[in-house]
């Protein structure tokens, strides 16, 4: 237990040091990865803890990103304290609405219907004035954190923005960890294990799944909001099925049902994109191979590595 906590704190300490290096490129890259890590954790609530494999999670990411862009005035800064809750609220509401339909299906049908709704959202932003076409929209001015003239931090400052994202990551992590220990969270895990039995014990599982779906949409919205703020523009690509697939891969790579695993999955995924991207034009081919290998040889994902090391150490110890 304590070793685990120590490992997490070391990881956090390293992340805290990143902006101190002064390497602007890497700070932005890690900031982007942290955003994707939040996104992956939000999906893990569905895939890893509730047993709902959503293949359309990018929709809520993208809806929140577009919400920031649309709710911000063209040449002025919007208030962070308005625009962030609004963007997150909108993506949660969209997820609630979509959940009403998709949660009536199961298994492969659920995967397909979540994908279909995400494609629907993609084309809403791609083909209507709402989204500004395939070029997307610029977010000219980042939201301001000022409260009645007092400015606790400045999102235009790269270091401040980095720490703001890191703080959101920690908050989302603690929030999800707490929820999963609650009676509500235990029901979600029960649904993943045996939904039929949960129903026969008197749980109206549809409502629980709907709440989880909306919650995951809202948390994915936090990531989408941050993404728009970091990059300053939004495109329909944010809602594309590639994006849904990527985040699913992060969760699978990291080990489903493990929040730290989801974070690690986001780091490994982005790391592979960067490294293989410099090696070859066909980097996606290499990445595909690595992912297939990971699924074959590391079925529990990255999160299973500590347990394996521990077991092999204990095994070695008993031989001596």
């Amino acid at each position: 237990m304590n070793a685990q906590l120590l490992l997490k704190l070391v990881g956090l300490a390293i992340l805290l040091c990143v902006p101190l290096t002064g390497e602007s490129f890497y700070t932005e890259l890690i900031a982007k990865t942290l955003v994707l890590a939040i996104f992956a954790m939000s999906l893990d609530l569905l895939v890893g803890f509730t047993g709902l494999v959503s293949f359309g999670h990018a929709a809520y990411f993208g809806v929140a990103a577009y919400a920031v862009a649309q709710l911000s005035p063209k040449y002025e800064a919007a208030s962070l304290w308005f625009v962030m809750p609004a963007a997150v609220g909108i993506s949660a509401l969209v997820a609630l609405f979509v959940g009403l339909f998709v949660l009536r299906t199961k298994g492969i049908y659920f995967i397909m219907v979540t994908l279909a709704f995400a494609q629907l959202a993609f084309f809403v932003f791609h083909d209507t004035p709402l989204g500004g076409g395939s070029d997307g929209i610029y977010l000219n001015v980042k939201p301001t954190a000022s409260i009645a003239g007092w400015m606790p931090f400045d999102l235009d400052n790269q270091t401040h923005l980095y720490y703001f994202i890191l703080a959101m990551l920690v908050l989302v992590y603690l929030f999800l960890g707490r929820i999963l220990q609650s009676p509500f969270g235990r029901v979600l895990v029960g649904i993943k294990s045996n939904e039929h039995r949960m129903q026969s014990m008197g749980y109206l599982t549809f409502r629980y799944k709907l709440a989880a779906f909306a919650l995951a949409g809202g948390l994915g919205g936090i990531a989408g909001f941050l993404y728009a703020v970091v990059f300053g523009f939004v495109t329909p690509e944010l809602l594309s099925w590639h994006q849904s697939g990527n985040v699913l891969l992060m969760v699978i790579l990291g080990g489903m049902g493990n929040l730290v695993g989801a974070i690690a999955g986001a780091f490994v995924f982005t790391g592979m994109q960067e490294v293989f991207g410099t090696w070859s034009k066909h980097w996606q081919l290499i990445m595909g191979g690595v992912i297939v290998a990971a699924v074959l040889f590391l079925p529990g994902g990255l999160a299973a590595i500590p347990g394996r090391i521990k077991r092999s150490l204990q095994g070695g110890g008993s031989n001596e």
Binding site: R186, V187, M201
Partner: peptide, 25 residues
């Protein structure tokens, strides 16, 4: 799940309190 958790979930079904997301089961 452990035996206890199986039965605890069954017991919880009689007073589900789903909104208490910050209490520990």
């Amino acid at each position: 799940f452990t035996v206890l958790e199986n039965v605890r979930l069954a017991a919880q079904s009689r007073n589900q309190q789903p909104w208490r997301i910050f209490s520990k089961a």
